[in-house]
């Protein structure tokens, strides 16, 4: 499949959404709502549950299963209150030393007038900044589309997984094509130029683990993901806070390809 075909695949209705992964990965769940500031954004589905025997906080972008839910969830484009709810629950997880597991599937943060009025940029900026220094282990899984800042707000994590066909990009290929060629139908070319696939992310070091997709055996696939989560949660919880924070800082600090004094930096990513 080409990069754009992969993106089309993960955007299709009928593919498992975050709710299906939550159902299979976490037991004894308690759902949590609201940002305690303005409202509740159902595009962010969140709560506490057990990963094996370990209590974890899960924060997921849920596109919705049917038309009604999809409209209610803004097709998985969170509003500022969604990001503030996510941040509230991250801080709560930090208080109780619970690992945070984020599931990401979004075209991007919602681009509406009220989102701007309520500080979409500020909400994302704060989420990224606080997540970068959260004193508890963080793992993010891109299960579908990782759309720009709206995805990064939940992906500034210790380790990032992606599904085989999942994509992660700074801009949608359609948006990119209409900027470069004034022609959004050239999105497939833009998708190639941007390098958006899980395999590309693995090469860049943006993703650490890529899971094969096998929706005929969805439970089995979730078992594989669960085993990896447990392994990483165990590894991270055995580290002192300072070591986790340093490793997370270094993980993002290394991104950058540039020339300095005639020497090329960052290509060993």
């Amino acid at each position: 499949m080409t990069a754009y075909e992969k993106l089309k695949t993960v955007r299709q209705n009928g593919r498992p959404t975050a709710a299906d992964y939550i159902e299979n990965l976490f037991s004894n769940r308690v759902r949590l709502c609201g940002d305690r500031r303005f409202g509740e954004d159902s595009a962010i589905e969140a709560g506490i549950g057990l990963l094996g025997d370990t209590p974890v906080t899960y924060i997921a972008i849920e596109k919705g299963k049917d038309v009604t839910q999809r409209i209610k969830n803004n097709f998985g484009c969170p509003k500022p209150e969604g990001y503030r709810k996510a941040l509230r629950l991250m801080k709560q997880a930090e208080k109780f030393r619970r690992p945070v597991i984020c599931l990401v599937d979004t075209l991007g943060a919602y681009c509406g007038m009220e989102a701007e009025e309520r500080g979409q940029g500020q909400a994302i900026a704060e989420s990224i900044m606080e997540m970068s220094a959260l004193r508890t282990p963080t793992i993010s899984i891109v299960i579908g589309e990782g759309g720009s800042g709206g995805a990064l707000a939940l992906c500034t994590a210790d380790t990032v997984y992606m599904l085989e066909n999942a994509c992660y990009s700074v801009i949608s290929p359609e948006g990119c094509a209409s900027i470069i060629w004034k022609d959004s139908t050239r999105a497939p070319d833009a998708a190639d130029a941007l390098r958006i696939t899980a395999a590309d992310m693995k090469n860049f070091g943006v993703a650490d683990v890529v899971f094969d997709e096998n929706f005929d055996n969805f439970k089995g696939m979730c078992k594989t993901i669960s085993a990896q989560l447990k392994k990483d949660v165990d590894r991270l919880t055995s580290m002192p806070d300072s070591a986790i924070l340093q490793a997370r800082y270094d993980r993002f600090r290394k991104f950058g390809i540039y020339e300095e004094g005639g020497v090329l930096h960052g290509t060993d990513l």
Partner: peptide, 26 residues
């Protein structure tokens, strides 16, 4: 905004700069 001509690496600059701001703030 982010420089799309550098693909995902430009998006990662948002995390890199934010983490540095946080460290300075702390």
């Amino acid at each position: 905004g982010a420089r799309m001509q550098e693909g995902i690496i430009s998006l990662m600059q948002m995390a890199k700069t934010s983490a540095a701001v946080k460290k300075h703030s702390e």
